[in-house]
Design a protein around this nucleic acid. Structure first.
Lengths: 153, 153
DNA sequence: CTGTGTGCAAACATTTTGCAAGCAG
DNA sequence: CTGCTTGCAAAATGTTTGCACACAG
C-alpha cells in the first residue's frame, strides 16, 4: 500500500512529484502542479469532473482541460501519489495518497464520506488472505449507512 | 442486507420472482426467466455484458437484447434478488443474492473472485459504525491480491 | 383488448485517443 | 531544437431512453 507519503508538507510532496517526473523523462507543467496543489489544499475525494471544475475555478488562467485532469490523475495513481476508489453510485473518486491507510464510511443520504482506520480489521484481513493462500496487495472496505445528521432529519 | 434468500432451490426462487412481478403489476416473460435461470445455474459474478452473452448462447431463440439484461438486473437488484458490486477495473458485476452475506478476495492477475465470510469483521464494522453514529445499511469489503496459482506461475 | 415488455437505434455519460500547436528542458 | 504536453474534437465504452411492435394477463 501507500507508504512514506504520510504527513508530507506540500513542499515535500511537490519535490516528490518533481523527482518522479524527472525519473520518467516527463515535464513539470503548470497544469500538473495546479492539479496536485488542488488535491492537497482540499483533502477530499474527487471525481475527475469535480476536480476539473475546481482547478478551473482556482486557476482560470491555465485553462486546464478535463483531458489533462484525467491524464494527471492516472499519472499520480500509477506512481502511488493518489489513489482511486469506486464509491458505488457516486462513481470513481480520487484522493491524495499521503495519509496512512484508511477505509470509508459513506452516508447513503447526503453522500458524506468519513474516513476511519482499524488495526484489528487489518489483522483479520491478513488472516483471511492467508487462509485462502492469497498474497494481499491491497484492500477496500466501505461501510454504507445513514449518518447522524441524516438520521435526525 | 439480503435476508431470506439463502439456500433457495430454483423453483423457490422462481416462485419468489413471480410473486414479486405480480405484486408490482409486472409480467412474467421468457427473457426474464432466462436471465434469472442463467444467474442461478452459474453461481458467479457477471457484468451485464457477460451475462448477456451467456443468455444469448444458452437461449438463442429468445434473441434477448442487452437492454433487457440491464433492465432485468436492475429489477432484480431493486427487489433484493440480486446484488451488484463494483470490482475496480473489472467493472460492475451482479450476483444472485441468495447466499448469506459474504465478501470477496480478488486476484489481480487472473481476475478470480473468491468469496468468504467472517463474523468477527462484521462485528468490528458494527462497532466502527456505532462510534461514528452511523446507522449501517450495507457494507463492502474487497481484498485484492495474488492467488495461489498465480503466485506459482 | 390493455398496457407492460421487447429489441433496436439513438441518446447519454464517462473516459480515452488522435492530432496539431505550445512549451519545458 | 526536440519531443513531451496540452486542449480540442472525435472515438470508444458502458448504460439508459424513446419508440413502435409484440405479447402476457
Amino acid at each position: 500500500m501507500i507508504k512514506g507519503l504520510e504527513h508530507l508538507s506540500y513542499e515535500e510532496l511537490l519535490e516528490k512529484f518533481k523527482a518522479l517526473l524527472k525519473t520518467n523523462g516527463l515535464k513539470y507543467t503548470a497544469q500538473r502542479e495546479a492539479i496536485l496543489r488542488t488535491l492537497f489544499d482540499n483533502q477530499d475525494h474527487f471525481t475527475p469532473e469535480n476536480l476539473y471544475l475546481l482547478v478551473k475555478k482556482n486557476y482560470p488562467d491555465l485553462n486546464t482541460g478535463i483531458t489533462t485532469v484525467y491524464r494527471t490523475l492516472n499519472l499520480l495513481e500509477e506512481n502511488n501519489i493518489a489513489t482511486s476508489i469506486s464509491f458505488g453510485s457516486q462513481g470513481k473518486k480520487f484522493e491524495l495518497g499521503n495519509k496512512p491507510h484508511h477505509d470509508h464510511l459513506i452516508c447513503e443520504k447526503c453522500g458524506a464520506i468519513v474516513e476511519f482506520e482499524d488495526e484489528q480489521i487489518e489483522k483479520l484481513q491478513n488472516k483471511i488472505a492467508k487462509m485462502h493462500d492469497f498474497k494481499l496487495t491491497n484492500h477496500l472496505m466501505q461501510l454504507y449507512g445513514i449518518c447522524k445528521q441524516c438520521q435526525n432529519s
